[in-house]
Design a protein around this nucleic acid. Sequence first.
DNA 1: TTAAGCGGTGCAATGGTATTGCAAAGTTAT
DNA 2: ATAACTTTGCAATACCATTGCACCGCTTAA
Lengths: 137, 137
Amino acid sequence: MKELEKKLSDKQINPTAMRLLALDYLTKRSAAVSLTEMELEMDRSDRVTLYRTIKTFEEHGLVHRIEDGTGITKFALCQQGCDPGHHHDLHVHFFCNSCKETHCLPKTIIPEVVLPEAYQAQERELIVKGICAACAV
Amino acid sequence: MKELEKKLSDKQINPTAMRLLALDYLTKRSAAVSLTEMELEMDRSDRVTLYRTIKTFEEHGLVHRIEDGTGITKFALCQQGCDPGHHHDLHVHFFCNSCKETHCLPKTIIPEVVLPEAYQAQERELIVKGICAACAV
DNA sequence: TTAAGCGGTGCAATGGTATTGCAAAGTTAT
DNA sequence: ATAACTTTGCAATACCATTGCACCGCTTAA
Ligand SMILES: [Mn+2]
Ligand SMILES: [Mn+2]
Ligand SMILES: [Zn+2]
Ligand SMILES: [Zn+2]
């Protein structure tokens, strides 16, 4: 898996066994994932180690955090080049009310909105809830 | 406070002392509020009672829940007529990175977005983060 | 070749919020 | 006054996030 190693080193992340496993797992997932899901589906892993692994990934611009309104934080690989310390994912996230999965919609950009006088926007997050493509009949 | 009583009865909520206090508190707040804040600022109140009070308010269409991305659920009075069991607040919520307050922007409507093929939207939530009017110099 | 230094991992412990169970207190209708 | 129902308070539980600390393996400086 030289590819995975390269992805890590490109982001200045030391490619340990655990991190390669986590990256491999994330790469194969289509939906965003919570820490608890990762813990259950990847055995041979401690929750805290996963927590710190994901945190490292996030800080180095490899994954982004998604607050989908369920109260449970999810994570997904960044699409384009996000930088350490600064993400610029401005895509919509979709939460399926049927299968409860959260998907990145990288091609769906969050539109700008006009705010009341004197409000200054710095970031924005749009969650759309409904029925995902896989669940639609 | 016949006004407050009326607001409650209009929503089919039995106007108890606790509920009147909570509604009064919410009415006077400009920012959205978390359960913990309510618990601290309204003394003579049990957290669980507040929890259930808010839950009742929410179910009857009197307040709406706001997930502002902090992981802590906030609540605010509904603006227009929301119905029991079905809210139709489609306004933007603003989280101030400076004062950490969350504001409803009732006049700022969440724009529709075009989703990928076969995705069906049912609800949407937009959080804008930045500097609020009060914090802007 | 040791000894120190350091990053990474695992386990235990803590903190904070959400949620439920249950019994006491209050309210309303016979 | 009694019964039925609602509301409230306290205790307990369930999670999830986060931190502390000790251990392990590897690299580097004496
Ligand atoms: Mn995403
Ligand atoms: Mn609002
Ligand atoms: Zn689905
Ligand atoms: Zn502010």
